[in-house]
């Protein structure tokens, strides 16, 4: 039997009066890539922000390895090993690539493992090694995305939350990023992947959830979702 690593039970999140999540329940098992797809404004980012503790749910529970985390502050959730590469990348523009990566290891601050992890990130993203002393803000969009993922990896995540890693990237780069996401998963990191690019997301994920205006309307294996008619029409652009 697979074990649920991350579990959301009937989570409701509000922005003031705006009811953004209207009872989300989902599960991410150890070793999986789970994708959360949906159109703009569906509540995908809000779901990740709620897991990370950047927004707190009004009702409902979030469990990580069986213990509740929905009332913990964001920095403690990071310490548990839940790391997020936020929407829009949000790298530190005036810090170098290396300094950005070091910030990712903020909670650990252990120079020996830090060196190992840097090596791991550079192996996944050889491009970052070439740009080591360049300021984050001067990187290209694709490089910034690599840096954002690499920075999250420096925190040694057990669960990695990725918010639209393909946003604004050229098709070749998108393929490259998704291949690397699979590699990271094979190395043992559980991934919750939020995407508008449903085609690519379902191609790499094991399972998927479809989110529509704050509600989960479908959930199935990635393969089943790919052949689902509604999904094809609404998110894969097929008639």
């Amino acid at each position: 039997m697979t074990t649920a690593m991350l579990e959301l039970q009937d989570v409701h999140t509000y922005y003031g009066n705006i009811h953004a999540l209207k009872g989300i329940s989902l599960t991410v098992n150890q070793g999986e890539i789970v994708t959360l797809i949906g159109s703009n404004g569906a509540g995908k980012s809000t779901t990740l922000r709620t897991i990370s503790g950047l927004n707190s749910p009004r009702t409902g529970q979030i469990l990580f390895n069986g213990t509740r985390i929905d009332r913990l502050p964001a920095h403690e959730i990071v310490r548990l090993g839940i790391l997020q590469s936020p929407e829009g990348r949000r790298i530190f523009p005036r810090l170098t690539v290396l300094e950005n990566l070091e910030m990712g290891a903020f909670t650990r601050n252990d120079s020996v493992t830090m060196k190992e992890d840097l090596e791991r990130v550079y192996t996944l993203f050889p491009r970052l090694r070439e740009r080591i002393a360049q300021k984050g803000g001067t990187l290209s969009g694709g490089e910034q995305q690599m840096l954002a993922i690499g920075r999250a990896l420096m925190g040694r995540p057990t669960v990695l939350l990725l918010d639209e890693p393909s946003m604004g990237l050229a098709p070749v780069l998108v393929e490259q990023i998704f291949t690397i996401i699979q590699d990271i998963n094979k190395q043992g990191t559980t991934i919750l992947l939020v995407e508008q690019n449903a085609l690519m997301a379902l191609a790499v994920a094991h399972r998927g959830y479809v989110l529509q205006t704050g509600l989960i309307v479908l959930s199935d294996s990635a393969a089943a979702l790919q052949s689902n008619e509604t999904v094809q029409k609404a998110y894969l652009g097929m008639e």
Binding site: L54, H75, V78, R94
Partner: peptide, 13 residues
């Protein structure tokens, strides 16, 4: 540099 990203790094902002 970026308050939101700082929080995402586990910094108690």
């Amino acid at each position: 540099e970026d308050e939101l990203a700082a929080g995402a790094m586990g910094i108690n902002t």
